[in-house]
């Protein structure tokens, strides 16, 4: 990267614009999370607060799935830690931008780090764009709809109960599938992606209802890619 990395309002607007259509894909997810939170006995204020501060749907759904009264403080915290370990694997890939920022910008940007915004930021970095404001903009464009739809889901509560397996839930999967398309770099990705899929399927079968399959698949696939590159270079 030859350009100096910047952090501007224009970059934030660019991120905001790009992420808005993606945020449509998480609307059903937000509503489902709100409905589940209401079913678990959380108040509207608690549901909204959780979505605003945790801002990680899969971990929220998993924690709410085994909620109790009084609330399972340790269990919910551990669930968030395990499900969101994948976010720890994402941060380092943003180094080309984050390493050149100072202070609050880094740590505030990281608060809004989610899968979709991260995938778009990686595409930006690979295209040689250097405005790190993009990440905060896309994060905000995903955060606000997330909080609003969680609250709406809580309000709809018992009215809106799409049964498990309803095609509306496919929107969450479709969001990730569409983000995969620009990440495909060619033949070199074939083996690592195949390994990631196989390991994820296996681990999902061994540990159903957990999110270890994502971490295991990603690690196995990435290491396969790195080792294949090293063999090719040697």
């Amino acid at each position: 990267m030859t350009d100096a990395v910047r952090f501007t309002r224009a970059g934030m607007r660019r991120g905001l614009r790009q992420a808005l259509p993606v945020s449509l894909g998480i609307l059903p997810f937000g509503i489902v999370t709100g409905v589940v939170a209401q079913g678990a006995g959380l108040s509207l204020a608690e549901t909204t607060l959780m979505s605003a501060t945790v801002f990680a749907g899969a971990s929220q759904l998993m924690a709410l799935g085994s909620w109790a009264h009084p609330a399972p403080v340790l269990g919910a915290t551990l669930a968030a830690l395990v499900v969101n370990l994948r976010l720890a694997l994402m941060g380092p890939a943003l180094a080309p931008w984050l390493d050149r920022l100072r202070g609050w910008r880094v740590w505030l940007t990281l608060f809004f780090l989610v899968d979709h915004g991260w995938a778009m930021a990686i595409t930006e970095i690979r295209a040689g764009r250097s405005d790190a404001g993009f990440l905060l903009g896309s994060g905000l464009a995903l955060w606000l709809p997330w909080v609003v739809t969680s609250a709406a889901g809580h309000l709809l509560g018992s009215l809106l109960r799409p049964p498990p397996g309803h095609p509306l839930f496919f929107a969450a999967l479709a969001a990730f599938i569409s983000l995969l398309v620009p990440l495909w770099r060619g033949r070199q990705d074939l083996l690592p992606w195949a390994v990631a899929a196989l390991v994820a399927l296996l681990v999902a079968r061994l540990l159903p209802g957990s999110y270890w399959h994502i971490v295991a698949g990603a690690l196995a696939g990435s290491l396969t890619g790195a080792l294949a590159e090293r063999r090719g270079a040697a």
Partner: peptide
């Protein structure tokens, strides 16, 4: 090199079981 493969493999790991 492994980190460069991570974006793709992470999402593949997420969507494959679904």
């Amino acid at each position: 090199a492994a980190l460069a493969y991570l974006p793709g493999t992470l999402f593949v790991g997420y969507v494959a079981p679904g």
